[in-house]
Write a protein that binds this DNA or RNA. Structure first.
Lengths: 108, 108
DNA sequence: CTGGATCCGGATAGATACTG
DNA sequence: CAGTATCTATCCGGATCCAG
């Protein structure tokens, strides 16, 4: 992310953390439980693996999600919200409500 | 905006509308009242005029804001939230609360 | 002088192929 | 399965220019 200019505004700070191209969607899917990389890919098909990896790494760096690699064959990597990441769920719910009510889409 | 793929998820739809680079910040500033172009520029100094214009036009196209041009000299253009745009304020408040509580920034 | 538009170079995202 | 690598297309930022 660029423009990580802290002008002491919480909205700006929040956007700096969750404003990445697919971050809100990733957090939203992870809010329903732990997911593996390819499960996220299926849920966000328009994000390429490269972008998914990049956004996941940034979310991990910002402590919103955890990444657990199991040293098995075939590879297995699980992504989950941290407690900190879970703290953003009210925002996701507000966004979902707005999407439901005003964009007339029935289901999540 | 690209990726305006409606997969019938309200969060995806919401992100399609407000996911632009400066849209949340613009909406946030306009939530406090009507602003002129250069007033928005002052509040969002890291957005170039070009980007500001682009994002404002997209928000206008999506009916979240209104643009009123007064044919006077010097030019005067006012941007304001529409009623539809105001409906997103709960999301902005949730985001602001999250920013305040978890990013430890005192003021808006 | 405000509220933009235009042009260009660098950064970012997408498509596809490939690997440990 | 979970990513990389590479190449291309698109977007963003900065400077400049322009009309009312």
């Amino acid at each position: 992310m660029k423009n990580e200019i802290n002008i002491n505004c919480p909205v700006v700070n929040a956007v700096n953390v969750i404003g990445g191209k697919y971050k809100i969607i990733i957090l939203y899917h992870l809010s329903e439980g732990t997911l593996r990389f390819n499960e996220l890919q299926k849920r966000i098909p328009y994000a390429t693996p490269k972008m998914l990896t990049q956004q996941l790494r940034e979310l991990e760096r910002d402590k919103l999600i955890s990444r657990t690699v199991y040293p098995v064959v075939p590879p297995k990597t699980e992504y989950a919200l941290t407690d900190y990441g879970k703290s953003i769920m009210p925002v996701l719910e507000a966004l979902c409500d707005w999407g439901k009510t005003y964009l007339e889409t029935p289901e999540c």
